[in-house]
Design a protein around this nucleic acid. Structure first.
Lengths: 233, 233
DNA sequence: ATAAATCTTACAAATTTCTTAATATACTAA
DNA sequence: TTAGTATATTAAGAAATTTGTAAGATTTAT
């Protein structure tokens, strides 16, 4: 955690400098940006592990910046703001921020919250360039495209290569429904001449692994909200 | 995220019930406990994804409970407390809590913070029982024991079962050096009768995968600081 | 009740992983 | 340097896993 790169974004240079000093003393490496655009730029240029983001800034404000960042990256964002009204906090958090601190803040509390966020981020093994699209979450399923690893409510499930490819396809197109031919052509990348039930069997095995309960909604046509259908469409 | 199990811990039953109602309305499943001991019990009994924890409670207070939980689990902990003094917040956060909310709280902000924590936790693919020692980091190697996934400088490497077991053993005992017999007995859990070079071959493949450079430090005796030695010890 | 769609099961083919063994290279000590 | 031992490499067959096929069972819709 020592040595983590923190980006401080605030148009008020005094505050930015104060934060810089504070965090540097704690052993972090600090970079500064003075508006949202600069922040976005810094993010692509450098390997940053946490962002402290002011709300009111010229060019691109903190909330919009948060939205932009979340399109790309998943790093912890702490919003710092003079607005202490609850509605602002809620707005900030719902836009993807991880914490919201109001000015004036207690320096020690800020440091504590920074460390808390970093601990979570780092503990979960995600320092680095984890972009948002490196994994797909649908319901209780979480497919990590990097490691080709599936989690079902947190429990790791070992997928065979084809099983992975099928789930990947279905999850990236969650909500849509496909015929087995469509799945076959997408996954095997070759025309499905005969209507074998190869895809079906794979689906069956996937269901078994992720424990689609075979009781209540018998005769399922989907895999947990992920489209799948055998008959022609 | 809908349907996540939340444990509410507060000895004040009115507050506990209010939180229950609030969170249930948001679509969460809520369980209640009325002191720290009950909370710890609930955690082993049920699959809980987030804890809301009061500080002042009989039997085992919130801070001590936080410490206890962190010995075992890594789930998000939000402390709710009447004490709004900064020192308390800092204490709570440094003990491993993920957020700290003071009473009286705005219900919407609380919900927003709960969702924020869950989003982070779930996004990172870790709903469930992620214990703190779920991964080992040695040098550029990062072995996730939960997902049995190896990362070499962030790049995921697919390990076969035996390769995983060997690396797991070597990395959990990083720094120590073992004979191939020792490794064999630990990993295969059966006595190494003959001195085959099975282990050696596996080590070879692991090295190949993690790209131990075969040039410079030729005739290696270690795998990146991880002990391994063939000759008898 | 019948037909179509979906599911289940079992087995054989294909592929991957593991073990063995034979051989090669590097180190160590006399 | 040379013999002896430790470590590496490679190849090939055995074992285990993954994949594809097909035949039959169940569910749904008509």
């Amino acid at each position: 955690m020592e040595g983590a790169n923190i980006l401080v974004v605030d148009d008020d240079k005094e505050i930015a400098n104060a934060l810089d000093k504070l965090l540097t003393m704690e052993g972090f490496k600090v970079m500064k940006a003075f508006n949202g655009l600069e922040a976005l730029d810094a993010l692509v240029q450098h390997d940053i592990q946490l962002i402290l983001l002011d709300v009111m800034m010229p060019k691109l404000d903190g909330l919009s910046t948060t939205l932009k960042i979340r399109e790309e990256k998943n790093i912890p964002i702490i919003i710092i703001s003079a607005k202490s009204e609850d509605s602002d906090k809620i707005l900030g958090l719902s836009m993807g921020a991880d914490d919201y601190i109001t000015k004036p803040f207690n320096p020690d509390e800020l440091v504590a919250r920074v460390k808390s966020q970093l601990r979570r981020y780092i503990t979960l093994g995600n320092i680095g360039n984890v972009t948002n699209d490196s994994q797909i979450v649908v319901g209780g399923l979480n497919l990590n495209k990097e490691s080709k690893q599936l989690f079902v409510y947190g429990n790791p499930i070992r997928l065979t290569p084809t099983e992975y490819k099928i789930l990947d396809f279905l999850m990236t197109n969650a909500g849509m429904v496909f015929s087995s031919e469509q799945i076959y052509e997408k996954v095997w990348k070759e025309p499905a001449y005969s209507v074998e039930n190869t895809v079906m069997v794979h689906i069956r095995r996937i269901r078994e692994k992720i424990e689609i309960t075979p009781k209540e909604p018998k005769y399922l046509k989907v895999v947990w909200g992920i489209g799948y259908k055998i008959e022609k469409l």
